[in-house]
Simulated assay, not measured.
Amino acid sequence: MIFCPLYSGSSGNSIFVASQKTKILVDVGMPGKSIESALKHINQNPNDIDGIFITHEHSDHIKGAGIISRRYDIPIYANEYTWEAMETKIGNVKENNIKIINNNSVDIMDMHIANYKISHDAAAPIGYALYSGNKKACIATDLGYFSSEVKTIIKDADVILLESNHDVEMVKFGPYPYPLKKRILSDVGHLSNDACGQAIVEIMNDKQKHIILGHLSKTNNFPELAYQTVANILKENCIEIGKDISLDLARRNMPSDVIDF
């Protein structure tokens, strides 16, 4: 499989995932031209995308979904409540490209795309676990907290995009109004750097994992701070980066490194 966060952060999110026969995008939260540019950067053609899978209806996850669907005739997959919440925001989509997810999974050729519930302040937010052969990748961002369901789903994945959204003290003393601070720090908000580090400790087992820290806040975090906070927690728990685990950061404004696994 191939896994690449094209954009990741509070400004916009989109992830490219491919198996031998299938290519999909999870979320399209950037303008169409930005998505096209990112795909070109990693030598991928948007005409080859087989589906767009939406986690939830917030603008940083759906901004370019309608444009890309119309331009390249790509189906958009989302659960019923997410469709209802986003359909007026993405423009007209061809009827045959509206795919309502009614079950826990969808199969597209050789890729199995399972979904699972996450805690976030959206209509019916979900994360995705993507399988092909004996490989598995998971996308776990926009988590209010690290639930037992999320833990169970992602613990055996080869590659995980895991939220490391904010530093708690930066939120508390930052410029956001109090209601927004309260929302970010709540169980339907976002996962902090410390919570991310602890989550990684909880899913450690004998399986070698490649974890990418993603969805970093532009206002309440720094890439170096997110990485170092998580690294310190791993070190405190005798987990060695480069030996027990691979740890990377997803870039905000350009594609991250392509992971081929």
Score class of each variant (00 low, 15 high):
16 F>H: 04
114 A>L: 12
45 N>V: 02
208 Q>L: 15
130 L>T: 01
193 N>H: 14
247 L>G: 08
60 D>I: 10
163 E>F: 05
222 F>D: 10
43 N>L: 05
257 D>Q: 11
114 A>I: 02
71 R>C: 06
239 I>L: 11
206 D>R: 07
210 H>D: 08
57 E>P: 06
220 N>R: 00
196 C>L: 07
23 K>S: 12
242 G>L: 10
128 Y>K: 02
179 P>M: 08
207 K>D: 08
130 L>M: 15
91 G>F: 09
12 G>H: 03
26 V>K: 00
24 I>G: 03
33 K>A: 11
214 G>K: 03
92 N>F: 13
32 G>V: 10
166 H>Q: 12
178 Y>E: 15
113 I>A: 02
179 P>K: 05
63 K>C: 08
257 D>V: 07
184 I>V: 15
157 A>R: 02
196 C>Q: 03
18 A>R: 00
249 L>Y: 04
210 H>K: 12
6 L>E: 08
81 Y>M: 12
149 E>S: 11
91 G>V: 11
250 A>D: 04
47 N>C: 12
85 A>K: 05
190 H>D: 06
211 I>Q: 04
33 K>T: 09
7 Y>F: 15
81 Y>T: 01
245 I>F: 09
238 C>K: 14
17 V>A: 12
156 D>V: 06
15 I>E: 00
32 G>I: 11
66 G>W: 03
261 F>V: 15
244 D>R: 07
100 I>R: 14
97 N>V: 07
190 H>G: 01
178 Y>T: 14
37 S>D: 14
236 E>N: 14
61 H>S: 03
149 E>Y: 02
116 Y>V: 11
201 V>T: 07
190 H>M: 09
203 I>Y: 08
191 L>G: 05
122 A>C: 15
195 A>H: 02
150 V>R: 02
20 Q>C: 06
161 L>P: 01
238 C>W: 06
231 A>C: 08
78 A>E: 06
62 I>Q: 00
222 F>E: 13
80 E>I: 10
86 M>P: 03
248 D>N: 12
47 N>E: 15
170 M>G: 00
188 V>W: 06
151 K>A: 13
163 E>M: 15
190 H>F: 13
170 M>R: 15
12 G>Y: 03
225 L>P: 00
251 R>Q: 13
109 M>S: 13
6 L>D: 07
191 L>N: 05
218 K>P: 00
130 L>K: 02
129 A>Y: 01
168 V>E: 15
114 A>R: 13
109 M>G: 00
175 P>K: 11
215 H>E: 13
148 S>K: 15
210 H>M: 09
27 D>R: 04
172 K>A: 08
230 V>L: 07
176 Y>P: 00
84 E>Y: 06
